[in-house]
Design a protein around this nucleic acid. Structure first.
Length: 277
DNA sequence: AGAGGAGCCTGAGCGC
DNA sequence: TGCGCTCAGGCTCCTC
């Protein structure tokens, strides 16, 4: 389940191989994955054009083309974007194939087919609402204590739901949110508006650390995630709470518990993470 | 307006 | 062995 560190790892492993390459042809095996415009226009807009560079924003991957077109990918849970050379055998879950001029391929594969692909012209960013409305990135200059406090103040929902909302902070998903809340010592059902300045500062530190460590480890692989070369990440070995329910907390030895918060499975340490009232 | 829940999807894992 | 159920989770859409 790719979150920001996984998508960043995909970007980094792909860029060396695809920047400057020309897309010879696009084969759309599952047209419904193309959300905008339609699959026929999608193929036309990209075929014969050079990939200038690949960028990441939140959990989105963006291929900038030489004709000012942007090909945008969101991998959701099981999407994978891999560079493969001509002789590699096919993946059962291939959905979209980008044939490159050198004979290699860029493959979009997706088991559960929940990923979304778009192709937009300059000025059409608002066609992708989720991308258009993204909040600041962790580790960026915009992700400040003042910003976080101003957002928390007006939010009466739970902090876990707040952190998962991409309009507040771009790129966090279930794994990194649970880990961030553990590091900050905050119980996931704490109301966002109850988090004071000191705790908000801890939360920023925690989010930044978790994201940075995740990127350095090449992402977290629980099930499907692989980078642009098809390799797994290693950050799963360092998780404190996610996927560790009924196990001992690595800090205090208390048994990690699992509850549902806003419909999401949520792991936490009942000793290390306190409800703030 | 903001919060919460359903739905989209397929595969893995479980109990019977 | 196999059936049916639940869960996994990012995001959009809908309702309250």
């Amino acid at each position: 389940m790719p979150e920001m560190p996984e998508v960043e790892s995909i970007k980094r492993t792909l860029e060396k191989n695809i920047n400057g390459q020309v897309i010879k042809n696009v084969i759309v095996l599952l047209p419904r994955m193309i959300k905008y415009p339609d699959s026929i226009s999608y193929v036309k807009m990209l075929s014969g054009h050079k990939i200038k560079q690949i960028q990441r924003r939140g959990k989105y991957l963006i291929m900038q083309m030489d004709n000012e077109i942007m090909a945008v990918f969101h991998l959701r849970m099981t999407g994978r974007l891999c560079y493969v050379n001509k002789n590699k055998q096919e993946d059962k879950y291939e959905r979209i194939i980008f044939e490159l001029n050198n004979g290699d391929k860029l493959i979009y594969a997706d088991t559960r087919t929940l990923g979304t692909l778009y192709c937009i012209k300059p000025g059409e960013l608002d066609k992708i609402k989720g991308l258009y409305e993204l909040g600041p990135e962790p580790l960026s200059a915009e992700f400040t204590l003042e910003y976080l406090q101003s957002k928390l103040k007006n939010n009466r929902g739970k902090i876990k739901s707040f952190l998962l909302n991409q309009k507040n902070i771009a790129g966090l998903g279930n794994i990194y949110v649970d880990e961030s809340l553990f590091l900050a010592g905050i119980y996931p059902e704490t109301k966002a508006c109850n988090i004071n300045k000191k705790k908000a500062g801890k939360l920023i530190e925690a989010v930044n650390k978790v994201i940075k460590d995740g990127i350095n480890d090449g992402g977290t692989t629980f099930r499907d995630y692989v980078n642009g070369k098809g390799e797994k990440g290693t950050h799963q070995e360092k998780l404190f709470v996610y996927g560790r329910d009924k196990k001992q907390c690595k800090k205090c030895g208390t048994i990690i518990e699992k509850i549902k918060v806003g419909g999401r499975g949520t792991c936490f340490c009942p000793h290390c993470q306190k409800l703030i009232k």
